[in-house]
Design a protein around this nucleic acid. Sequence first.
DNA 1: CGTTGATTAATCGCGTGCGATTATATTGTG
DNA 2: CACAATATAATCGCACGCGATTAATCAACG
Lengths: 142, 142
Amino acid sequence: MPDFDPLALENQLCFPLYAASKELTRRYKPFLDPLGLTYTQYVTMMALWGHDGVTVGELGSRLYLDSATLTPLLKRLEAHGYVDRKRSAEDEREVIVSLTDKGRELREKAVSVPYCMAGCIGISPEDAIQLKALLEKLLSSF
Amino acid sequence: MPDFDPLALENQLCFPLYAASKELTRRYKPFLDPLGLTYTQYVTMMALWGHDGVTVGELGSRLYLDSATLTPLLKRLEAHGYVDRKRSAEDEREVIVSLTDKGRELREKAVSVPYCMAGCIGISPEDAIQLKALLEKLLSSF
DNA sequence: CGTTGATTAATCGCGTGCGATTATATTGTG
DNA sequence: CACAATATAATCGCACGCGATTAATCAACG
């Protein structure tokens, strides 16, 4: 390849990653709107459905988000009645985030979302599995 | 798998895609700061280095961005002196975006960025190529 | 026991990202 | 030609996303 252009958009790994992430997020919107969740709020709820009663910092490390993003987001989830935020008794610096009953109930409405999205993904299950594995490898390499 | 949880974070394709995209963008920052570009501005400049003198709409379809994002972004690039925005003479609805000399010169400083980033990617070139191909397949399936 | 340093969230500022609307210009149709 | 339909960018509102700073609390050490 005598004329490989390192600055051409089509030669970047980052660009399809960036574009695909945005597109996929956009695909979630019609399924998340009925739940009153944004994509980031949905991911946060998934993390909490897995394990709640955690600090903002723990949640952030699982989601790759810091308190500047999480604090206002959690306040919105709290305003919707899905989560509870309270200072830890042992350590007043920490804020413990827990699901409310309404937040746990929301999970029932959300279980269909992954199945709806599976129908939107235009690649084979094998490709999807491989893609997921490669992304996780990239992510853990940082 | 008797207890597969469709709402577990570790069972999602979207989450590592979302997280890896953010992380990679963050990795670009130290290399882009000296150029005075954000990641999105860098991607926009790459698109223009490939082919400029295009409308906002054309640029947006190449970058998967709409005018609500591009217009203010292009105004910032214009304020930095990298691009030129002017109404088309044939069709006054269109705005033609072109590189300035300064914008073309910026390319010389940017050529090292992909090589710097290659050193930050913690996966093998083979994996990177395969990952790029799968992302493009996913993207084109939308 | 007080003071210093570290930890944790919250806040601030700026730049996306995008659905929805608006303003302007062009095109098509009778 | 008039006028409705369409196309294009700009604008608006809200929610991230994150580097940097701030405020409050805790831990360590003399």
